[in-house]
Amino acid sequence: MRKHLRTAPVLLTLLALLAGACGGATATTSPSGPFRVAVVMPSATTDMAYSQSMFQAMKAVQAEMGGESALEFAWSEGMFNVPDAAAAMRDYATQGYDLVIAHGSQYGASVQEVAPDFPDTSFAWGTNVDTFGMPNVFAYTAAAEEGGYVNGVMAAMLTQSKIIGITGPVEVGDAKTYIDGFRNGVAATDPSITINATWTGSFSDVALMTEAANTHIAAGADILTGSSQSVVGSIGAAKDKGGVLWFGTQADQATLAPELVVASQVYDWVGVVKDMIAKHQAGTLGGEVFTLRLSNDGLKIAYGTGYSLPADVRSAAEAAIAGIKDGSIKPLP
């Protein structure tokens, strides 16, 4: 983690404040300086999931482009409060950031309001598919059902009890689309398998999620999966019991328990961010929708490092990936 100060943006902030910057569209970017990107995120950059996936992508893009001299990157995390996020976006745009990424589906209305005031700044928001018809707004989303389907295929081949457990906080957003794809992948491989689902209603209650996983295991499940928030509780329970496997999504979760994690669907925003930067530099400030897919390498299946996957399962997974890529397999019914 970076803790040292960068004086330039701070001074800029102070100057902007002193100048009474109240929503003017005065971009102060210098054409020769680094490309400047700001990200506004709802949760912490260490959430092992959504915000972290974007944070890491930004770090990767920065390294690839040649460090801070080529890409300057600022972020605001913990912006659950939408007006705060809107203020942050306006702030960054006023400071002359070239690309402001609103990394939360709840930020749509704010983007819609801030973007027209800063026609020289690109805004991006996700996950969604709506650019509001504005020339300086990008949208991005992830086809989570694709990796869900692939995970489902593997899970169906690996389960011996023919019972699979799904855990998560609330069945909405990409948690839902991932699960929908997973169910479909299981059913396409072995329709006789039972899938049980539990939802705990809380994004942070790990104790309850652990018991949800224990419940699944007691009900006979030998494979668990679910949205990223439920991973830690499930892996804890699976470790205690032994012989129970886990499939992850959003980020590579193998580090938590290498021997239990068969595979994770990984969101890789690097391509999307690089595309948006390239478009901006070429003069296209928005108006396009990016979707992370297996076919554009935005979604990847990361196989577990400590679990030895049987060769036939691995090849079935690869066949499913290929099928989804060429369109012969539809991950959703």
């Binding site: 457990g165 049980n196 689902a197 539990t198 939802w199 705990t200 699944h216 009900a219």
Partner: peptide, 21 residues
């Protein structure tokens, strides 16, 4: 009751999870 509602979600899938919670 909290442990019970988790089992209910597993065994009575037609019940809305949000209500069980």
């Amino acid at each position: 009751v909290n442990a019970f509602q988790l089992w209910m979600q597993v065994l009575v899938p037609e019940m809305e999870a949000d209500i069980a919670v």
